[in-house]
């Protein structure tokens, strides 16, 4: 019977916390980015699209390093934040930042898939009934995107649970502070006699991912039922 050490429990809690907060913080900007790419007529859309999708094709380690440059004390963002006494690098917040950047393109993609399915005539009808573009964004587009948002959230949570490369560079691998499950497994495999611990955390990972899939399925099926009330 595998036993969880206090470090394992901390890693589990940290993983859930980081993934949860990152997912929650990714959804609003992802929704706005998706809307801008799908419905607005902003110039330089293609460039913007590429920028958003870059983390999907770049190695996470590269992203991690670029983020480190931005958020370190000498970096553009790091300097600003240190004036406000906020320290990001090598804290759990750094893991959240890494997860947000890496899951944003996934969430944007899934929301856009939801948005293209919205009949443009519905928006025309809303405008003729007096709804401004902003009004229609929240009264028509957002509610019709709920299934896409749920799918996007599932992807973001999964991506965040598995994040390794960017996290280890930006947040480090400090047990109890920034060590999430993947980092803990990496530690176990590097220490003699760590096979048992690594396997236990693997099983926990499987369980967690499975729970998340179940949750997303419940949300989607409830939405479908509401839809055909």
């Amino acid at each position: 019977m595998p036993v969880l050490t206090p470090t394992d429990l901390q890693a589990l809690w940290l993983s859930v916390k980081v993934a949860g907060v990152a997912t929650f913080l990714t959804l609003p900007p992802a929704f706005l980015v998706a809307w801008a790419l799908e419905f607005s007529k902003v110039r330089g859309r293609a460039l913007f699209d590429g920028l958003v999708n870059l983390p999907l094709v770049l190695p996470p380690v590269v992203i991690g390093y670029l983020l480190l440059l931005l958020f370190s004390r000498q970096g553009i963002i790091g300097k600003l934040l240190s004036q406000l006494n906020i320290q990001i690098v090598f804290t759990w917040k750094a893991a959240v930042v890494a997860c947000i950047v890496l899951s944003l393109p996934l969430v944007v993609r899934s929301i856009r898939l939801g948005m293209v399915q919205i009949d443009p005539q519905l928006l025309a009808a809303a405008r003729c009934l007096g709804a401004t573009r902003l009004d229609a964004l929240f009264s028509i587009i957002l509610p019709l995107c709920i299934p896409a948002l749920a799918t996007g959230a599932t992807l973001a949570f999964a991506r965040s649970l598995g994040e390794f490369g960017a996290t280890i560079i930006l947040a480090g691998n400090i047990p109890g502070v920034t060590q999430t499950i993947p980092l803990a497994i990496y530690d176990y495999t590097n220490s003699p006699g760590g096979e048992q611990g690594a396997l236990t955390l693997c099983l926990i990972s499987i369980g967690l991912s499975y729970l998340m899939l179940l949750f997303s399925e419940v949300v989607l099926s409830r939405f479908r039922r509401n839809d055909s009330r």
């Binding site: 405008r127 003729c128 007096g130 709804a131």
Partner: peptide, 8 residues
């Protein structure tokens, strides 16, 4: 369109 008050 939203200011014209013409419904379709």
């Amino acid at each position: 369109a939203e200011k014209r008050r013409i419904a379709v």
